[in-house]
């Protein structure tokens, strides 16, 4: 996968290897330890049938898969499907709308361009403290006209998430679009390609790494979002994973920490897999593109 032109060097060895490559492994291992340590707690709790989340420092003193098998009798699987559907659609929508906007900002010159770019970013900075009240009222009235976009609807929630599609993501893509040489689209234009053809067939392919990054970012942020989701999705069977986990954890007295931990471990898997899958586009995508372009 990582076979790029850079790897055609002769392999380095010995001290030079340590100075140039080896230390990177040390850092990698240390960082992974730091990343994983708190998660060990969660995994340990998930293997303990009637334990607490942070009550014990003796990790892995019990090993039982009860919590995992008990997840089957909860709505966990449904939540998982809901989350995957909602987050996938949100991520695709965000990537598409964000890329389109970034293309417009990067390739066209129009009055108010700078102002609107700034405005997009500033709008995202509004504290969403009362968002839950406002979103509830909004979806309540939208629901009277388009029931599919109203309360308790996955589509409604996706629409709310897509409201944030422009903004930081647009900026990230905009910056990346600007690094794609304009000569490419100039040449295509001279060949008679329309702006839409340039966008869909040339630019999008060249910016694949950033599309993958933005897709992942918006997937993850939708995946972990529960403040708006719990307002929109009012029924247990419609919950997303984040809402379901939040509800389990919000029980102050009898929180099912074992189930919670098991669910948290399982729910982290899609994100890791998705990153695994997208990594090939994120890393090295541009090289592939520029060779063809």
């Amino acid at each position: 996968m990582a076979t790029t032109s850079l790897e055609q060097h002769a392999p380095v060895t010995g001290l030079r290897w340590w100075r140039e490559v080896g230390w990177r492994h040390v850092i990698g291992i240390v960082m992974i330890a730091i990343c994983v340590l708190p998660l060990l707690y969660v995994i340990s709790a998930s293997l303990n049938p009637n334990g607490t989340l942070t009550g014990s420092n003796k990790l892995f003193r019990t090993f039982s898969l009860t919590n995992y098998s008990e997840l089957a009798s909860t709505d966990f699987a449904k939540w998982g499907v809901n989350s995957l559907v909602i987050c996938t659609v949100t991520a695709l929508g965000t990537v598409f709308m964000g890329a389109a906007a970034a293309y417009a900002f990067s390739r066209f010159r129009f009055s108010g361009r700078r102002a609107s770019l700034t405005a997009l970013l500033l709008i995202q900075m509004f504290p969403q403290m009362l968002a839950f009240v406002a979103i509830f009222l909004l979806l309540l009235s939208v629901g009277t006209v388009f029931p599919a976009l109203g309360l308790n609807s996955q589509l409604g929630l996706i629409a709310v998430y897509l409201g944030g599609a422009l903004g930081v993501n647009t900026f990230l893509m905009y910056g990346f679009f600007n690094t794609v040489p304009r000569e490419l689209d100039e040449a295509a234009k001279i060949d008679g390609a329309s702006h839409a053809q340039i966008f869909f067939t040339i630019i999008l392919r060249l910016v694949a790494p950033i599309l993958a990054v933005v897709g992942l970012l918006s997937f993850v942020s939708a995946y972990g979002e529960f403040v708006v989701a719990k307002v929109v999705l009012q029924r247990v069977e419609h919950y997303t994973l984040a809402v379901g986990l939040y509800v389990w954890a919000s029980d102050e007295r009898n929180a099912p920490w074992g189930l919670f931990a098991a669910a948290a471990v399982l729910s982290a898997i899609p994100v890791v897999l998705l990153f695994q899958f997208l990594q090939r586009y994120i890393v090295g995508g541009l090289f592939a593109g520029s060779v063809k372009g």
Binding site: A159, G163, L166
Partner: peptide
């Protein structure tokens, strides 16, 4: 290119 995102932004943000 901007309109789809802007419409959502307008309504929901």
């Amino acid at each position: 290119y901007l309109l789809p995102g802007l419409l959502f932004l307008l309504v929901y943000q």
